[in-house]
Amino acid sequence: MFDDLPPDLQRLEVLRTWHAMWVERIDAKIRQVREREAQQARATAAAEERVPDWLIEYGLNRDSIPNAVHVGGCSMAGKRSKGTDSDTARRALAGGVAACGFCRPDTELGILDG
């Protein structure tokens, strides 16, 4: 069946030892990669769980002015939204940036039109 293997016991034992060492090295590398992937998955899950309290949505241009303010986690916020704190969100609303009509951050922040 395995005619390509050496016929003597000594060389067969050397081959077996050699391959056992490689299997051990491969198993150690598999453990390392699994641990690294598990750490990355935990970090990604932790990052996804952290939803900012407030979002400011920007236009298409990289240097554009803000288009809208949203409550964190608002489904209407676009991909160009960045998390911010409540003071910055208040300043943006006071400076004329539109409040999202869906999540109403102006109401959440206690800013009333007057």
Rank of each mutant, 00 (worst) to 15 (best):
83 G>F: 06
84 T>R: 06
40 Q>R: 12
78 G>I: 13
6 P>G: 01
102 F>W: 11
17 T>N: 04
92 A>P: 02
39 Q>S: 03
49 E>Y: 13
87 D>E: 09
53 D>V: 04
33 V>A: 06
36 R>W: 12
55 L>W: 14
106 D>C: 05
82 K>Q: 10
76 M>E: 03
50 R>S: 00
69 V>P: 10
16 R>S: 04
13 E>C: 08
44 T>A: 12
7 P>C: 03
98 A>S: 09
100 C>S: 05
5 L>F: 04
61 N>H: 14
54 W>H: 08
102 F>E: 00
51 V>D: 04
112 L>Y: 14
87 D>V: 15
84 T>S: 01
18 W>G: 15
112 L>W: 09
78 G>D: 00
66 P>S: 03
49 E>D: 15
75 S>M: 11
43 A>N: 03
10 Q>C: 07
29 K>H: 05
2 F>Q: 10
99 A>S: 05
47 A>V: 11
25 R>W: 00
71 V>W: 08
107 T>D: 15
6 P>I: 09
48 E>I: 06
10 Q>M: 12
26 I>L: 01
32 Q>W: 02
76 M>L: 15
85 D>T: 15
35 E>I: 00
80 R>L: 04
63 D>L: 15
14 V>S: 10
89 A>P: 10
29 K>I: 06
26 I>S: 02
43 A>L: 05
109 L>N: 03
78 G>T: 06
95 G>E: 01
56 I>M: 08
4 D>N: 09
1 M>G: 14
106 D>I: 11
52 P>M: 12
105 P>H: 01
77 A>C: 11
8 D>N: 13
100 C>I: 07
16 R>G: 06
75 S>I: 05
82 K>P: 15
62 R>K: 11
2 F>T: 13
48 E>Y: 07
85 D>H: 15
52 P>R: 04
68 A>D: 01
100 C>K: 09
64 S>K: 08
114 G>C: 02
6 P>L: 09
63 D>N: 12
63 D>A: 13
3 D>T: 10
46 A>P: 00
